[in-house]
Every structure is written in structure tokens, then in C-alpha cells.
Simulated scan of single mutants.
Amino acid sequence: MHDAPEVAVLRYGHRPGRDDRMTTHVGLTARALGADRVIFPDNAGQSRETVEDITDRFGGPFDVELTGQLDATIREWDGSVVHLTMYGERVQDVTGEIRETHREDPLLIVVGGEKVPFEVYEAADWNVGVTNQPHSEVAGLAVFLDRLFDGRELEREWEAADRRVIPQERGKRVVDGDLDEP
């Protein structure tokens, strides 16, 4: 989608049964709004399957991984790390600097699932708050990605889509992806 280095989203923590839907939505939001891949904790296999299924049906490229090494993923990341948290610097104050850094460096965006340990705050290059108020981590991720990409992600063309949604004023229209319809 973009010519810059990779953008990956790391879902930090997953409580099976409690976080299933939210973890899945972190992955779907990452995919839809311009990230290249999502990394889930190894106990989020159902979320991985769902995001891979959506990618197969509605297009990619987008990768989904599982890891048992969340802290090591952050620590060993070869690039910059953004931790989305309500306690961070205001998104509107730091996104320009992050965007400039991302022109050269891969970007890892950490999205918490349960209480995030202080070590994550220390490891991050930026702790970023979207409103500094309690709300959904999915909403925070969406706002951050939209600001990072300046809205360009909304114009993305999807490759290898089995299905495409045709925008229209009312109703729902989904067609086979190989049709040449606008």
C-alpha cells in the first residue's frame, strides 16, 4: 500500500474467551487501514484464522503471525516502536515526527490487550495517546493509522480479492473480485 518500510501491529496480550472479538478487530483494523502485518500472542489462533480468512476473501497482501515472545518481538524490533496507550503523548503532537522516522525505519505499533507492563512503556520510542481518555484500543489504532498515512490507506487497491464491496449510497453490494466493475 505504501512505499515506506513495513508497518506491523503487535497485539500485546490476549485473554481467550474475553478478548477474542477485540483481538480479531485489532487485526482487521490493521489490515484495512494500511499495516502490512499483525502479530498476535500464540493463544490467539482463532483471531489469526479469522483475519487470514478475510484476507483470502477480500484481498491482500497482509500477513498474520502468532508468537509466544511478545517482549522479545519489541526488544528485537529493527526499527521504531510506537505503543498506543491513553497515558502517552497526544497523537496530534507526535504523528509528524513518527511519520518522518518511518520514512527510513520499519514501524511496530503495540496495542495492549490486558495490563501492559512498564517495560513496554520504556521500550517504546513513543507512547502515544489518542484522546488520553479510556476507549477502545481498536479505535486508537484506527485513528493512529489514519494519521500516520494521511488518509492514503482509504484509497488502497486490494490484490487477489475473491470478493469486492461496491460502494453505493444504500444497500449492500458484494461482487466476485475478478469483475472489472468500478
Rank of each mutant, 00 (worst) to 15 (best):
L108S: 10
R57L: 13
I54E: 12
E52R: 12
G113Y: 02
G112E: 11
I39D: 04
T73L: 02
I109F: 01
P61K: 08
V94S: 09
H102P: 05
E89M: 15
V111K: 00
A72S: 14
V111Q: 04
P41F: 01
Q69H: 13
E49K: 11
V91R: 06
V111G: 04
T24H: 05
V82S: 02
F58D: 04
L66K: 03
E104K: 08
A35Q: 00
V110T: 09
S47M: 06
G88Y: 06
T73K: 04
N43Y: 01
G112R: 09
A72V: 15
T73V: 08
D93I: 12
S47Q: 06
M22A: 14
L33I: 07
L28C: 07
R18D: 15
R99A: 14
T23Q: 05
D93T: 15
V64R: 00
L108V: 08
T24Y: 06
Q69T: 07
R18A: 14
E52I: 06
V116T: 14
R31V: 02
E100A: 15
T95C: 13
L28N: 03
F40V: 01
V81N: 00
R18N: 10
V81P: 00
T55G: 03
G113A: 03
I74A: 13
V64C: 07
D63Q: 12
V111W: 03
S80Y: 06
E49Q: 13
M22R: 14
M86A: 13
Y87D: 14
R90M: 14
E97M: 14
R21K: 14
I39W: 02
T67R: 02
E76A: 10
D78L: 02
D93W: 09
Q92C: 15
K115D: 15
V51H: 02
D19M: 05
A32M: 12
E104V: 10
D42F: 11
D78E: 13
P106V: 06
D19G: 11
V94H: 08
I39R: 09
